[in-house]
Amino acid sequence: MVTIKGTVVFEDLSGGVWVLAADDGNRYQMEGGDKKLLKDGQRATVSGELASDSMGIGMVGEILRVKSYVLG
């Protein structure tokens, strides 16, 4: 499990992917999450797994499987 703080961004890439732009500069393609979290510009602290066994259409960085989150 990892916990990452950052901004949720809807990236206009590959038809649209939800990305967590972490405050440390890393970027993650998010898998999971709900409508409260998946809002462009939403600040959040997201807990989840880095899915090193996965790939995606975003190709912006690792895939982050969201387990829980705290908004703000």
């Binding site: 590959s14 992917v17 996965s54």
Partner: peptide, 13 residues
């Protein structure tokens, strides 16, 4: 091989 959110496992790929 990819889900409705556009990701999937290397095993399936």
């Amino acid at each position: 091989v990819l889900s409705s959110q556009g990701s999937g496992t290397v095993a399936h790929i």
